[in-house]
Amino acid sequence: MSNKSSVEPITQQYVIPGTDFTRAGEASSKVKTILKRLGYDPDAIRRVAIAMYEGEINMVIHAHGGTAKVEIFPDRVEIALCDQGPGISDVSKAMEEGYSTAPDEVRALGFGAGMGLPNMKKCSDDMRVHSIIGKGTDVYMTIRVRGTGN
């Protein structure tokens, strides 16, 4: 992806803890703060925040956590979410609104409505999901942004 631009991105890496649901969203919150400070367009910041937050929640719910790498370019934000969870058996099915394999206890926490991946796709300009059963899932998202202070 780095050949898209000669500008060196601001890179942030996070470990998403898988054992504590209450901490899900911390990394997204940090990214949101950085983007605000850099002066990006508020709508773009919100799309980045929602997409990454949904991804964080997914990793906590389904994969016992994972890692997030965020690269901030003047014209886009690239997010790579990688986990070593059980994998997604049918990615196209998982992309359908309302399809969820989350257990009831997750719904009691306010998630698991089957809107996570579709919403991540909606917020992204480009999203790719690579998943191998028993190995894990990688999600790559690109969100175009405007109005940087660069």
């Binding site: 969203g25 925040a49 929640i57 306010g110």
Partner: peptide, 17 residues
């Protein structure tokens, strides 16, 4: 307005500005 009182209600509100 929500009946969900875990921290994710605040995180959700935060992400949505």
């Amino acid at each position: 307005l929500t009946g969900l009182i875990n921290p994710q209600s605040v995180r959700t509100a935060e992400m949505l500005d």
